[in-house]
């Protein structure tokens, strides 16, 4: 990692990080990401098993272009483990009650087949505030 930041460097780092995320989510070639909710509740409900199954199935299909990442709790504790899928050509989707079996279906049906996995789709609970937090002067 880089050394201590100055103010300008913080803002430059923000630009770069935003671009990296945008690229990861949309650009051709980098086909997308799968984000697993790894809070205490998610892990207790089997998020690690889901994560393992995602990675394994992606490997089987040689989909190294899909990044698997972790995040905290989305708040949908009744439907843990939860997983968000963002891949080119599909709307960002949140899945709940993702067992290892559902995780495999997510890779095969959603990522590869371009179909949503019926009966496991959930809605994001709230509007994202971050785009409305633009730094002053921007």
């Amino acid at each position: 990692m880089m050394g201590k930041l100055t103010l300008d460097e913080l803002r430059a780092l923000r630009e770069r990080a935003q671009q990296t995320i945008a690229r990861r989510q949309t650009a051709e070639g980098a086909a997308g990401e799968i984000i697993v909710g790894m809070g205490t509740c998610g892990i207790a409900a089997g998020a690690r098993e889901a994560l393992d199954a995602l990675v394994e199935t992606l490997n089987q299909h040689h989909r190294g272009d899909i990044v698997v990442r972790q995040t905290g709790c989305m708040g949908l504790c009744f439907s843990e483990p939860t997983v968000e899928v963002r891949v080119t050509g599909m709307p960002p989707t949140i899945y709940g009650r993702v067992t290892a079996e559902v995780a495999r279906r997510i890779v095969e049906e959603h990522v590869i087949g371009g179909r949503l996995v019926d009966d496991h789709v959930y809605d994001r609970p709230a509007t994202d505030l971050a785009p409305h937090l633009r730094a002053p002067g921007k």
Partner: peptide, 28 residues
Amino acid sequence: FYQKQFRIVLRNCGVIDPENIEEYIARE
């Protein structure tokens, strides 16, 4: 905001990788 929920405190929960400071920085 059309949902019942409105997230200020939880704005980044379930969105960013909490172990990667750059993702936090990317969201202001």
